[in-house]
Design a protein around this nucleic acid. Structure first.
Lengths: 130, 130
DNA sequence: ACCCCCGGTTACCGCAACGGAACCGGCGCT
DNA sequence: AGCGCCGGTTCCGTTGCGGTAACCGGGGGT
């Protein structure tokens, strides 16, 4: 197709971008709700559709995803744009405020890459004998 | 008194360091559990006793505080040192791993100072009319 | 005998987050 | 007529974090 709606469309999301072994879950930080940080990651390269977000976030149910997006919209982190087409199309975009969180996520990721193994080792050691 | 136990003791904690209007509560981040970030702030200048932590964290009950400290100890973020004295004395100290979280807390605080008003404004606007 | 000190523990409970499964509406295709 | 697509919503159940209130142990003071 490659029509107008495909312009400005970022590359497809990697279905495994939140692999089960990804630190996102064990990491001792959270941005907003459980999924908000991952949503920001999904949106950082451009607008995404609801169903598109469900690909990498396969563990999230539509209910929780829509709750998360609604909360983020209320907080001015994303904008929701509904196109009156058929089948319906809705796009979510990071606002400039939402974009300001990306460096924080980067910092959190950097911390995890450096220090999370030590934390998990400590946790494992405590769990096994103490 | 100023005896040996007072050596290396940091200045007393400010009872209002977590003022109700402090962004810590509205901030869209969390480090670990609800109180972990504040505990790290309390410990960043040196070891603190259990009762000492309860001064600025006056909203936390002893149960939750001890749970928090225990979890942080399991994760290798703090060390607990009990002195066999009377009345009992226990000191909590940040480990070097725990100290690595301080820059992250600084980044979160900087974000809040810059952007939290915008987030709260968006939230307020959404709540009032939508 | 009583109470205070400190640093907790125990039992109980409420609420919000999270999750599963099913359903919906409008249009187009077959 | 029936099915599928998309972007949700609704109902219901579970989990677990966090909070409340009460209690504990052991020495020392009065």
């Amino acid at each position: 197709m490659t029509d107008a709606t495909d312009r400005d469309r970022p590359a497809p999301l990697d279905p495994d971008m939140f692999h089960p072994l990804c630190p996102s879950s064990a990491m001792p930080f959270r941005v907003g709700d459980k999924w908000s940080g991952m949503v920001i990651r999904c949106l950082q390269d451009g607008p995404r559709r609801f169903g598109e977000l469900r690909v990498p976030l396969k563990a999230v149910t539509p209910k929780v995803l829509s709750e998360t997006l609604r909360a983020m919209e209320r907080d001015g982190l994303v904008t929701r744009t509904a196109y009156d087409e058929n089948p319906p199309r809705v796009e979510y975009t990071l606002t400039s405020l939402g974009r300001t969180l990306i460096p924080l996520l980067d910092a959190a990721r950097a911390w995890s890459e450096t220090h999370l193994p030590a934390l998990l080792a400590a946790r494992g050691a405590a769990g096994s004998l103490d």
